[in-house]
């Protein structure tokens, strides 16, 4: 166990209407076993004790599954480690003297609410437009009446693992939500349950995605590189296919 000294430059913005700026803080004696959010907790305790406003940031599960946390650290969404969320990033990956610039996830579709806390409800609206199988509760057939090959289930699970953190949007140079949208569309397109609404789903979700003001994908692959759950852009390819097929027959 060792400790390090850091300089933090954190985006501070009191609310959506005000202008923000980077504020510099020094934080010494950061235990390297801490998670990134615990490091921010320590900073916030210090700020509180000085009578200053602590940094607002979203978080909940702190084990990399709820998708609530996230910030851009030195230009990389969820920080420099591969396939981890901010809450699972540990301070042992930094060293004394490092300057960390911490900014909120940004996109036209993500209004900043305060400091690092942004509004990602646009992602919810994409799901609302069709990211589900329309079955009511009750009266469903026996679970085993629909055999699904293990490989197919695993492939669907690969896509279903998306935690909706929105880092893909934040890191995409165009602010595209393709990886997020494609993950849900892929999951359901790969499973027999998703077939009935397959085309409608692709049309509706892409229309909603465009309406929310997300950018266009130019296959920059940044999303895949920062995605904490390793969602592959293969899903984006699948979405393109799904969408074209849907447009040509039902659009």
């Amino acid at each position: 166990m060792s400790s390090i000294d850091l300089t933090l430059k954190i985006w501070r913005q009191p609310n959506s209407d005000s202008l923000g700026s980077l504020e510099t803080y020094t934080l010494n004696g950061v235990n390297t076993d801490m998670s990134f959010l615990e490091m921010l907790d320590v900073l916030n305790e210090n700020l509180t004790k000085e009578g200053k406003d602590p940094v607002a940031f979203d978080h909940d599960c702190r084990e990399g599954i709820c998708g609530m946390c996230g910030a851009v650290v030195n230009g990389v969404a969820h920080g420099p480690e591969k396939e981890v969320t901010l809450c699972q990033l540990h301070m042992r990956h930094f060293s004394t003297g490092d300057v960390l610039v911490i900014e909120p996830f940004r996109s036209r579709a993500y209004p900043i609410k305060k400091d690092l806390l942004v509004d990602r409800s646009a992602l919810d609206r994409i799901i609302q437009s069709g990211g589900y199988v329309s079955v009511n509760t009750g009266g469903t057939p026996d679970g085993n009446s629909l055999p699904i090959s293990s490989q197919q289930a695993e492939l669907a699970m690969d896509a279903a693992a998306c935690i909706g953190c929105g880092a893909c949007v934040a890191s995409c140079p165009n602010g595209a939500a393709m990886l997020f949208t494609s993950a849900k569309i892929s999951q359901l397109a790969l499973l027999p349950q998703g077939q009935v609404e397959r085309k409608q789903r692709a049309l509706a979700m892409v229309a909603q995605m465009d309406k929310e003001g997300f950018g266009n994908c130019t296959n920059a692959k940044e999303c895949e590189a920062v995605c904490p759950k390793g969602i592959s852009i293969r899903n984006i390819a699948r979405l393109n296919r799904e969408y074209v097929k849907a447009v040509l027959s039902e659009g």
Binding site: V133, V135, P147, I148, S150, A153, E154, Q187, Q193, G194
Partner: peptide, 8 residues
Amino acid sequence: AQGVPFAR
């Protein structure tokens, strides 16, 4: 029925 990808 909802498409939960249970292990198979």
